[in-house]
Simulated assay, not measured.
Amino acid sequence: MTTRTALDEQPPPLPDSTRRAVLKTLAERVGRLRPTGLLTAADLDAWDRLLNPADERWLGHRDDLFRLSARSVHLGVRP
């Protein structure tokens, strides 16, 4: 089996469209984790503040937000 991984790194400051995409992805991930019990009430409160545009701690206000993602593809052959 062979694995290939591609990294996508976007350093700060992010363009507005990328910043919105990062925040949307984070909100979706927190939403999927919310019903699992893996995050404590304090964790959820913190994420709710960080993802709320009306909150002073909203991540969208930060100028050091960056994006780093990795995608891996696994290739194999049948014997």
Rank of each mutant, 00 (worst) to 15 (best):
R49L: 07
T5N: 08
E28P: 00
N52D: 15
V77T: 13
P53H: 10
H74S: 14
D55R: 01
V73A: 14
A21Q: 09
P12V: 03
T40N: 12
T3W: 15
A46P: 07
R49W: 02
H74D: 14
M1C: 08
M1K: 10
R34H: 06
G37V: 05
R49E: 11
A6W: 14
L50A: 06
S17T: 09
P13L: 02
S72L: 12
L33F: 05
D63P: 00
A54K: 14
H61Q: 11
L68W: 04
T18R: 00
L75P: 11
E28H: 03
L59W: 00
R32D: 14
W58P: 00
L50M: 07
A6R: 15
R71S: 10
K24I: 04
D8Y: 08
P13S: 05
R57W: 04
L75E: 15
P79L: 02
T3E: 15
P13I: 04
T5K: 09
L33A: 08
L39Y: 03
L59I: 08
R57A: 09
M1D: 07
W47Y: 15
D43T: 10
R62D: 05
A42I: 04
P15I: 00
R49S: 09
L23R: 01
E56A: 14
L23Q: 01
A46I: 00
L65K: 02
L14K: 00
E9M: 12
D43Q: 09
L23G: 01
L44G: 05
R34D: 04
R57Y: 05
P11E: 11
L38V: 08
A6E: 15
A6S: 15
S69E: 05
V77E: 15
P35I: 04
S69A: 14
V30F: 02
E56K: 10
T36W: 14
D43V: 12
T40F: 06
A27V: 04
D63R: 04
L23Y: 03
D16S: 11
L7N: 13
R49I: 04
R78C: 06
D16W: 03
